[in-house]
């Protein structure tokens, strides 16, 4: 096997591992969000199906959490700029 091929193979492997790591991080975020939104939205007793309000709450919980995350990051950036930081 030539050095060329070895390098190509290595590159492909690195890219594959990077994608799998990204997938694994997305999975981990989804597990964390499910746990947190479950605790926030599914507060009554368990039934044979979700109450309408519970399912809506789960969807809104994800979107509002991400809104909150972006809002806070933006405020931090603003504060850093005002402080004349890097």
């Amino acid at each position: 096997m030539s050095a060329q091929t070895d390098e190509a193979l290595e590159k492909e492997l690195a890219s594959f591992l990077e994608q799998e790591t990204a997938k694994s991080q997305v999975q981990s975020s989804i597990h964390t969000l499910t746990d947190m939104c479950w605790k926030k939205c599914v507060t009554g007793s368990i039934g044979a199906r979700f109450a309408r309000s519970e399912e809506g709450c789960l969807v809104n919980c994800v979107d509002r959490f991400l809104d909150s995350s972006l809002f806070i990051i933006q405020k931090v950036e603003e504060a850093r700029k005002q402080a004349g930081g890097q």
């Binding site: 939205c41 979107d63 509002r64 959490f65």
Partner: peptide
């Protein structure tokens, strides 16, 4: 802060 400020996530 999400826990404290967004108790009932809306649209």
């Amino acid at each position: 802060c999400f826990e404290k400020c967004v108790t009932k996530p809306g649209t």
